[in-house]
């Protein structure tokens, strides 16, 4: 199919983009990397009246180091994250996870802000951001505000962004030397969306403390299971009884099935990825 007609704007400043996006008399849609929006438009599942292309906004691109965090512009592409020394050094979980996200040609265009704003529950990035305790800076003509990643993803393709609001940047705390990270996903084919996946951040490994465990591909949003984190808090990740107790805690969550796996299978696979991610952290 071909895209339904739309009005195209490519503002050269964030201020102009925000004015365009603040219009409430028409369906205005921001275009970031386009790796999800363009397929939906090509299938005519999305038919915005106006498309505001953010790709000329250099001010939204880039990876900057601050004292305690890394500030990533919303229009920073996955490939730039992959290539970044700052990311490698300070956000090791990104470096583990990025090669699993789609395919090279998609990562060359797809942006971190676009992924966050789309809030696809099967995607890796929302889960990574919650696990890393990232903060999302949203901006609109009324100004900026900061939203913790854990409060940002509200449901299937649903975020805390208001109408006319854009993601400006995402700030990710720098990993400390004692922090440990885990990531595991089950995809039927390399680069596919996961049947189940998990991202884990721990302040300490032995014993486990300050855990954030976030699943993706198993619900209508990234699933931050505090019950698991609590079960594991202060324990050893090599203690199989404890790990099994943590796995049982997933069973109390209500997971969502999809075309290829029902809720029971999702629950089982979530347990498997948790076990394997923890095992990976032990290694």
């Amino acid at each position: 199919m071909k895209v339904a007609d739309f009005h195209y704007e490519r503002p050269d400043s964030l201020a102009k983009a925000l004015v365009l996006l603040s219009r409430d008399d028409a369906d205005v849609q921001a275009l970031a990397g386009g790796q999800s929006l363009m397929p939906m438009m090509n299938f005519r599942l999305a038919q915005p009246d106006t498309l505001v292309d953010l790709n000329a906004l250099e001010e939204l691109r880039g990876i900057r180091e601050a004292a305690n965090h890394i500030e990533i512009g919303a229009m920073t592409r996955y490939a730039m994250l992959e290539a970044s020394d700052l990311v490698r050094k300070h956000i090791p979980l990104f470096s583990i996870a990025l090669p699993h996200i789609a395919h090279s040609a998609i990562r060359n265009r797809g942006t971190i802000g676009g992924s966050a704003a789309l809030a696809d529950p099967a995607a890796e990035m929302p889960a990574l951001l919650i696990a890393l305790n990232a903060t999302i800076t949203a901006v609109s003509t009324s100004g900026e505000r900061k939203i913790a990643a854990k409060d940002f993803f509200l449901g299937l393709y649903e975020t805390a962004l208001d109408e006319g609001e854009l993601i400006k940047s995402i700030s990710v705390p720098k990993a400390l030397i004692e922090n440990r990270f885990g990531f595991y996903e089950l995809t039927r084919r390399h680069g596919d969306y996961a049947m189940a996946g998990v991202a884990i951040a721990a302040q300490h490994m032995a014993p486990l403390t300050g855990l954030r465990i976030v699943f993706f591909g198993v619900s209508d949003r990234p699933l931050d299971v505090t019950a698991i984190a609590e079960t594991l808090e202060g324990q050893s990740a090599t203690d199989t009884d404890i790990v099994e107790a943590a796995c049982r805690a997933i069973g109390n969550q209500s997971l969502h099935g999809d075309l290829n796996a029902d809720a029971a299978t999702k629950t089982h696979l979530a347990q498997v990825v948790l076990r394997r991610a923890l095992r990976g952290m032990n290694a």
């Binding site: 299938f43 039927r188 084919r189 390399h190 680069g191 596919d192 969306y193 075309l259």
Partner: peptide, 16 residues
């Protein structure tokens, strides 16, 4: 038909 797209109808790819 629920999976009329290449993302949902899986055919074999190189890696597997």
């Amino acid at each position: 038909l629920l999976n009329a797209s290449m993302a949902d109808y899986l055919v074999p790819m190189a890696a597997e």
